[in-house]
């Protein structure tokens, strides 16, 4: 059973009188399997948010259909097993972190000690235990994103829809969210991740789909899509110069050509995180 299935899903927006209609999504056939992390990529206006809104029945399709765990998306039952984190989420700023989770928990029919216990677990999971009684008006962007993730997880859904979950979040917060997505995957959750950050998607996603102008233009397994079968990279350590010359000679004698020889580089993100780790005062987070 697919966690998400769409067939010929199409959405046209009315632009107003005599302005025609905008084709936001064009016959999308999407299949997100249970337990996988699927990355939905695309430039602004490509139809990513429209897809998420259609899946959540916030807007109606012009044509085609969508299902969540084989339940039609226009049936409220389909949302029993879905958690959603919108892009740049706003919450009721006068509520504290814990009160926010109580509100969303009650909407999901939870109450009493089970809700209390769930809230404590989630605050711990997203690292907001110390900020639980602070009003959201005093939360940083990263903290709002994390409380947003907690509310999406409150009813322990099988599927998570994350729309730009790291938008505006610093590298530490971004890494935390990435780690959390991987942990959720380990727990058997299905995740649909819409993001502009390609490096992040590459790190966490099993499969990706690229949308452009409402159409799926590329889809597949991340590893097979990005690997170049004609090229081979071997990383060696402490190789003497004479040995290197022999290796290069062997490559040439085999009829292959050397494209580049260089020292491997770390990523800027790794360098940044490593520097913060070494700082004896700890990671820069005020919560």
């Amino acid at each position: 059973m697919d966690a998400i299935r769409t067939e010929q899903l199409t959405k046209k927006y009315d632009l107003g009188w005599r302005k025609g209609r905008l084709l936001a999504l064009d016959k999308l056939n999407l299949h997100v399997h249970e337990g996988e992390v699927y990355g939905l990529l695309g430039p602004n206006g490509s139809g990513k948010s429209t897809t998420l809104k259609l899946i959540l029945d916030l807007i109606s399709p012009t044509d085609g259909s969508a299902w969540l765990f084989d339940v039609p998306c226009n049936n409220v039952v389909s949302r029993l097993h879905v958690g959603f984190l919108p892009e740049n989420p706003y919450f009721y700023r006068y509520l504290t972190g814990a009160e926010t989770l109580v509100f969303y928990g009650k909407l999901c029919g939870m109450s009493g000690s089970s809700l209390k216990q769930r809230i404590e677990e989630l605050l711990e999971l997203v690292g907001l235990t110390r900020a639980r009684d602070r009003q959201l008006s005093g939360y940083s962007k990263g903290m709002l994103q994390r409380i947003g993730l907690a509310q999406a997880l409150i009813h322990d859904p099988k599927l998570l829809l994350l729309d730009e979950p790291t938008a505006g979040v610093d590298p530490i917060g971004s890494k935390d969210i990435r780690d959390l997505i991987l942990r959720l995957k380990g727990m058997g959750k299905t995740v649909l991740l819409s993001s502009h950050l390609l490096a992040q998607v590459q790190d966490v996603c099993d499969r990706i789909g690229v949308l452009n102008l409402g159409q799926m233009i590329l889809e597949g397994d991340v590893k097979s899509l990005i690997s170049d079968q004609r090229r081979l990279s071997i990383t060696v350590q402490d190789l003497p110069d004479d040995a290197r010359a022999r290796v290069e000679e062997a490559v040439r004698s085999a009829g292959a050509s050397i494209v580049s020889v260089e020292h491997p580089q770390t990523t800027l993100e790794s360098l940044f995180l490593e520097a913060l780790k070494k700082d004896e005062r700890g990671m820069g987070r005020h919560d």
Binding site: V76, V77, R79, L80, H81, K106, L107, C108, G109, M110, S114, R118, E121, L122, E124, L125, V126, G127, R146, L153, H155, D156, D176, D179, L180, G186, M187
Partner: peptide, 24 residues
């Protein structure tokens, strides 16, 4: 974020969502 253990699922044996005065 901390390495909290996998959170146990709340009761999810619903297959119907009726009108709820509690949610209202």
């Amino acid at each position: 974020m901390t390495n909290a253990a996998a959170v146990p699922a709340p009761s999810s044996s619903h297959d119907r969502v009726g009108f709820s005065l509690n949610r209202v």
